[in-house]
């Protein structure tokens, strides 16, 4: 649904986006992560046919971003970094305006608008001027605007920023529901927990380049290594680490626990369990140590910084 190949954008000699390639199939969510100024917004603007790529190609919803910009923009819903509402208008009037712009028809606009306003809990504010809306309400209305024409592709920049936890959950639920309905999402966010929750795939962009791309497990393996398992026993370890040394490399241990890294848990863990129980040690738990997207993100950025420094030194 979104295919970008070597997308590059140069502003007066400054490379804002450098050969970015993405492939986001229909019904999936890609979280685009990266520090401020990494090129996320510029990438989204190119995929929305707002900015023309300096080089590279991209197709969104089957349309070429350079050759068919109006069709691309008709097929995407965009939530911009700033909500950008017209504050003297009322919600329905505002949505009617965008409905006309998207040539949705009066009845369809009204129907979609009310349905989305209801979904996001904004019905009570239909007749309020947008200037009177709270920050979170404005963000939700901007989301309603982006979904108004029921686009197959949604490009959302920080969709839950400025929202209270309940509102943020409403938005996440909406994304999950629409994803089931084969909608495709590209979300740029600094909220890593949310990205982990929503995204099928994650891309990390830094200095305009994609430095990591894959699903969570792939990225975890790439940047923080093989999964780490934690074994807790009843009592003390009493030399257990040594007894397991031919099976696994113990990385850390305490009085009643130890951690080891495994490339293939399905093969190794049963062997460990057999060895431990054979030694007469009671196992309390054998579980994976959770690794967060934050660990992966920080490690990816750190490695890229190291690569950049090496490149500069050379």
């Amino acid at each position: 649904m979104i295919e970008a190949h070597e997308l590059t954008k140069v502003f007066d000699g400054f490379v804002a986006v450098d050969r970015v390639s993405l492939d986001i199939p229909a019904g999936s969510v890609l979280a685009l992560l990266g520090p401020n100024g990494a090129g996320k917004t510029t990438s989204v603007r190119m995929l929305t046919s707002i900015l023309a790529p300096t080089s590279g190609t991209a197709r969104v919803a089957g349309y070429d971003v350079v050759a068919e910009p109006e069709r691309v923009r008709a097929s995407v819903g965009v939530l911009t970094e700033q909500h950008g509402l017209y504050e003297r208008m009322k919600a329905l009037e505002y949505l009617d305006f965008f409905g006309r712009v998207y040539r949705l028809g009066t009845d369809a606009t009204r129907r979609n608008a009310l349905s989305l306003m209801e979904r996001f809990g904004l019905m009570f504010a239909l007749n309020k001027r947008l200037g009177e809306y709270s920050k979170g309400m404005k963000q939700k209305l901007a989301l309603v605007r982006s979904m108004l024409h029921n686009p197959p592709v949604l490009l959302l920049d920080e969709p839950t920023s400025a929202m209270d936890p309940l509102s943020a959950k409403q938005v996440r639920d909406a994304i999950i529901e629409l994803q089931r309905d084969e909608r495709t999402f590209l979300i740029t966010t600094h909220n890593l927990t949310e990205a982990h929750q929503l995204a099928n795939k994650i891309a990390i962009i830094r200095s305009g380049r994609i430095i990591a791309h894959g699903n969570f497990d792939e990225l975890a393996r790439q940047f923080v290594g093989d999964p780490i398992m934690e074994l807790r026993v009843n009592g003390v370890l009493n030399g257990l680490a040594k007894d397991l040394s031919d099976l696994v490399t113990v990385e850390d241990s305490g009085t009643d626990w130890l951690r080891f890294r495994v490339a293939d848990p399905a093969q190794t863990n049963p062997a460990v369990m057999r060895r431990v129980t054979g030694l007469g040690v009671d196992v309390v738990t054998l579980s994976p140590v959770s690794r967060t997207l934050e660990d992966i993100y920080l490690q990816a950025v750190k490695e890229d910084e190291g690569d950049a420094a090496d490149g500069n030194n050379r």
Binding site: R73, L104, G105, R111, N112, S115, L116, E118, R119, N150
Partner: peptide
């Protein structure tokens, strides 16, 4: 708070 989503109407084809 209502969460039941009604099917949305899709926009008309934009440009010929």
């Amino acid at each position: 708070m209502a969460t039941t989503a009604k099917p949305l109407q899709t926009a008309l084809p934009q440009t010929s």
